[in-house]
Design a protein around this nucleic acid. Sequence first.
DNA 1: CTATGTGCAAACTATTTGCCGTCTG
DNA 2: CAGACGGCAAATAGTTTGCACATAG
Lengths: 130, 130
Amino acid sequence: MKKDKLGAIRLTKQRKVILEELKKLNTHPTADEIYFIVKKRLPKISIATVYRNLKALSAAGYIITLKTAENQKRFDGNMQEHTHIRCVKCNKIHDIEGKIKLPQNYKNLKTNFDILGYNIYLYGICPNCL
Amino acid sequence: MKKDKLGAIRLTKQRKVILEELKKLNTHPTADEIYFIVKKRLPKISIATVYRNLKALSAAGYIITLKTAENQKRFDGNMQEHTHIRCVKCNKIHDIEGKIKLPQNYKNLKTNFDILGYNIYLYGICPNCL
DNA sequence: CTATGTGCAAACTATTTGCCGTCTG
DNA sequence: CAGACGGCAAATAGTTTGCACATAG
């Protein structure tokens, strides 16, 4: 990943709580899962705020947005380098420590793009589904 | 990618046309782009049929479903091994010939998953956006 | 001939937006 | 104190489903 500029967004209490809860979890929750968790601490928060803030936090580089096989996004508050593996049976996403490196020469690929980086997603079968 | 079992689905004229049009394109169209293209040949086709058949063709291994940064899926009828690169500015996805290989030892990663395979997505800036 | 597929319209899910009052820096 | 943000409800985008008829194998 390129050097992200962590945009200076305001640290409101809604954003603080969303961020804190997201960092506690390693389950890559969906927006509405986050909504229900955060509502325990901020009962008046609106789902629109959750969506707006997940987008803002992601744009500012505080969290990562994961696209899934389903039609909804999942969010990841773990900003240490790690790799995701998805279970082809239950679709759950788990973390693997460390980033898998591609051989240096991947930038020599035949393309007229200016290559900036890459993401690797593993897939397999999780212990529960074996 | 694992050896896909090409499921035996019925080759209806709707499916045949969808498949043919998809193979002509290298633009990774969305479901409704496909709908408008296919409608030129089958004016009475319904968007529901397009969605159902894209899902069926994908499940049967005839096409590939791409999840994107946006909220909609894109489809790829090119089944030769290739890698996708996404433009971080305009979000378009292009093809790069050949599959990038990970070093053999990627299966030794610290995880309790049974690792089956991986996908690599590159990102960069396309010539139009430079 | 029958299980599978189709068209249509209605339903549904995830996400976004307009408006307007509130709060952060 | 101005611009950014939040709550609410309504809107939208993408996709799915129920039903009755049509068709591939």
